[in-house]
């Protein structure tokens, strides 16, 4: 790949091509999301719980006048939940479902780095099973021998909307 193409990809931010990713830590593993989807990063604040909802959905917050749902990613991935502390971070992301944009917050242990990942660094995830839902994983990338699990943020919303009302 020549330099021009790389640059172009970097600027266009096409997912799956070269793009910048924000990584965060969840139980010592590093996860990545497209940086263009990140609206802001904020500390944990009190939420209003939503009754009749799954436990990983911590509730909703008031984000400058709009009501934004907050998901705990540890609980979403059926990991052991952690007590929230001053370092607990909420990444507010823009997600899309059927061309409709929405905003939701993801609770993570802490943010880590910003990487530029080339296509050659990413591979489609193999069938892995386990508690992490395959739908949420877009690809696996390697940076300096580290594995980064690149997540598909839209899948969180889709999963929420598809969950049947009971």
């Amino acid at each position: 790949m020549n330099t021009a193409a790389v640059l172009q990809d970097e600027f266009s931010g096409i997912p799956g091509e070269n793009g910048q990713y924000l990584t965060f830590i969840l139980a010592d593993e590093e996860y990545g999301i497209e940086i263009l989807r990140v609206q802001e990063i904020r500390g944990w604040s009190r939420v209003t719980p939503l009754p009749n909802s799954p436990t990983y959905l911590k509730g909703v917050i008031n984000l400058r006048g709009t009501i934004v749902p907050i998901l705990d990613l540890r609980e979403r991935f059926a990991m052991e939940s952690l007590e929230y502390s001053s370092t607990t971070v909420v990444i507010v992301v823009r997600v899309e479902h059927e061309d409709e944009q929405r905003v939701m917050g993801l609770v993570v242990d802490g943010v880590s780095e910003v990487y530029t990942l080339g296509k050659d660094q990413c591979q489609d995830p193999p069938e892995f099973g386990g508690s992490l839902d395959q739908r949420f994983v877009k690809s696996l990338a390697s940076v300096d021998e580290k594995m980064i699990i690149v997540l598909d943020v839209d899948a969180f919303l889709t999963a929420e909307l598809q969950r049947s009302l009971d």
Binding site: R46, V47, T48, L50, P51, N52, S53, G59, V60, I61, N62, G65, T66, I67, V68, P69, R102, V103, M104, E160, L161, L165, D166
Partner: peptide, 27 residues
């Protein structure tokens, strides 16, 4: 009245949400 569906979805037993004087959300 603030719509919950704007960013999330309908919740059983809840018609909408609002923001109270202290900035917190109430259903």
């Amino acid at each position: 009245v603030k719509n919950l569906e704007a960013n999330y979805r309908r919740i059983p037993g809840v018609s909408a949400a609002t923001i109270l004087g202290d900035g917190n959300v109430a259903l």
